[in-house]
Design a protein around this nucleic acid. Structure first.
Lengths: 347, 347
DNA sequence: CTGAAAGCGCTTACAG
DNA sequence: CTGAAAGCGCTTACAG
């Protein structure tokens, strides 16, 4: 009569409450056809009466199995990752899994801490967008070889894909940038800048490659001073708009690193009395909803991060459920790269 | 020799591996001063050698305790909630807790499913932004009286705060809207619209109240046709910009429901050849970074959702750690409302 | 169709 | 300072 007063009802309480064994309650709980219909109803009524809630942690422990997946991203307040996370959580939830969230703020040290903390909860799988500057070897020893891992959006330097067996999912930055650039060229632009991002990020380098490819294909020389670096945020982008206009002639259009940058650029242009879409052309890069209203309309071919999230979750669940897809020692890497070129199959 | 080949090392494996008992390993694990330094070192070396990772689920089960907190929000792709979630996860992670994520897409049915699934993981606490139209009674029976609950951003109709003992955290919508409206009035505007949001959402009603208060204080009559309803998204807002200009004279400024709507409005104005900030004034409502670059500058007094997230996490952890703050039967509700008016204390 | 027993990986008194 | 035993809330064979 000391602490038991309001203890949470357990399976044993239900069994006692309606005079059956714990095994029977467990069978009812998991929808087995074995118990008699009358028994089942009795048990269910008792569960309702006592306000029973299943303890999945205990069940998972006994079954040596887990119903969670860890999702570790850099920064949830970046709409690109927020969309991705939404897709992941959506698909995981639909499959009865729960998302363990972690974020690294792009810091490898925080990433280390977050991952080791999440691993103690024994997720079935891990979806990780590595922090800039992650060390592949350290990640590998941290993650072990037992949990399926899918890397998103960034490849740590020197990753040995064959040895790790990690999956990799990237939205095709290069192709998106190439198509955006071509879109501008088709509309008559010849002086096109690449605006935003830092060249030490791999996704920025990829996008710049696509930009350079399109220029080269049309025999347009690239002007190095038109590769403008900014942090990939609206605020930073807006404050660097002036850099586009220091030389004469100035560019008439810009391909942007991502949507945040594109919106920053539009705001910055507006602040300078220029009309984005009339005085200066700005297509975005990612397909985040807000950009659908930007002017001029964006080329409808950039990758969709939310769909990517769903894809990532589906892939992890596949590996969780069919471990033979992912033997402990494997010869060939299971590595998939989703490309927007696959007929928009991501949508 | 069938399945044991690559089983995960357990506490017993470590004990066996260095010739001590499991209890001793457990003590080392939890940093107890009891084990001899030499023993401790031996155990730690063995853990490293075998690649041991702590099974927190098992420990939590035995300790009848949990190290997770559930965070359930409407929509992660809404920057307001993404910022809030970032703050929550930040504070929870710093305290050694893990965030269980769930999202409802504003659907009470999904909310029901998400919550009951998350509850099976026995979170220590729950931070919930209720879906529009949530039924307080149903929530109460779902959540039980045992887990500390903090509601964010919306009060379900007919909530009996005293009976539930739920905390409530709201960013002060009304005051923010009032101040934004006053800001416009101070700058000479008399024809001011309220743009965006649906009047069936409580946060929209709150903001409209603040707007109406400011108008009344300055003896400006309210024009009902200038209360423009839109879904609270950039896209929807942009497509309703025309509604501002159907009558003559049209408003010269608008207070917006939130930042998404404000950006949509700015884009819509731009598309119509108007310069936001020159031809039409648009302050935002929430303090999301991107808005710092909008024109004209926003009044710097809107609430900060990320700080709100940290606050929410801190409050939940306080109740988790000091259950006496929250006795099972309580007479007075523990209900806190964070108001921006408290000297900007949120930052 | 139901019950008694063992065990998942930990922690917690309780002896020594 | 260390070991043997019981137990957290479940599931899983194995008998009946």
């Amino acid at each position: 009569m000391k602490k038991t007063e309001h203890a949470r009802p357990t399976l044993a309480d239900i069994a006692k409450g309606c005079g059956v064994s714990r095994a029977t309650v467990s069978l009812v709980l998991r929808g087995s056809p074995l118990p008699a219909a009358a028994t089942r109803r009795r048990v269910e009524a008792e569960m309702k009466r006592q306000g029973y809630v299943y303890n999945r942690a205990a069940a998972d422990l006994r079954k040596r199995h887990s119903t969670s997946v860890a999702l570790v991203i850099n920064d949830l307040s970046n709409p690109f990752f927020a969309e991705f996370a939404t897709g992941v959580d959506e698909a995981l939830g639909a499959a009865g899994y729960v998302t363990l969230l972690g974020s690294t703020s792009e810091s490898p040290e925080r990433q280390r801490g977050v991952l080791s903390s999440l691993l103690e909860h024994r997720p079935s799988g891990i979806i990780l967008s590595p922090a800039e500057g992650s060390d592949a070897g350290q990640l590998q020893s941290l993650l072990g070889a037992r949990t399926p891992v899918l890397l998103f959006n960034r490849e740590p330097a020197n990753t040995d894909w064959a040895a790790t067996g990690w999956d990799y999912l990237a939205l095709d930055n290069r192709r998106g940038a190439r198509l955006a650039t071509e879109h501008l060229i088709t509309h008559g632009h010849r002086r096109i800048a690449f605006f935003g991002g830092h060249s030490d990020s791999s996704s920025c380098r990829e996008r710049r490659k696509g930009y350079a490819e399109a220029l080269a294909a049309h025999h347009i020389p690239m002007e190095p001073s038109w590769l403008i670096e900014t942090a990939p945020t609206r605020l930073e982008a807006a404050s660097h708009v002036g850099a586009l206009f220091v030389r004469d002639p100035a560019p008439t259009a810009a391909v942007c690193y991502n949507d945040a940058v594109a919106l920053g650029l539009m705001l910055g242009l507006t602040a300078r009395g220029k009309h984005p879409g009339q005085d200066f052309a700005v297509p975005g890069s990612d397909d985040i909803p807000e950009c659908a209203v930007s002017t001029p309309p964006l080329p409808p071919l950039a990758p969709d991060p939310r769909a990517g999230g769903r894809q990532a979750a589906a892939r992890i669940l596949e590996r969780v459920r069919r471990p033979e897809v992912n033997p402990v020692r494997r010869s060939a890497p299971v590595s998939l790269i989703i490309r927007a070129s696959s007929g928009g199959g991501l949508r």
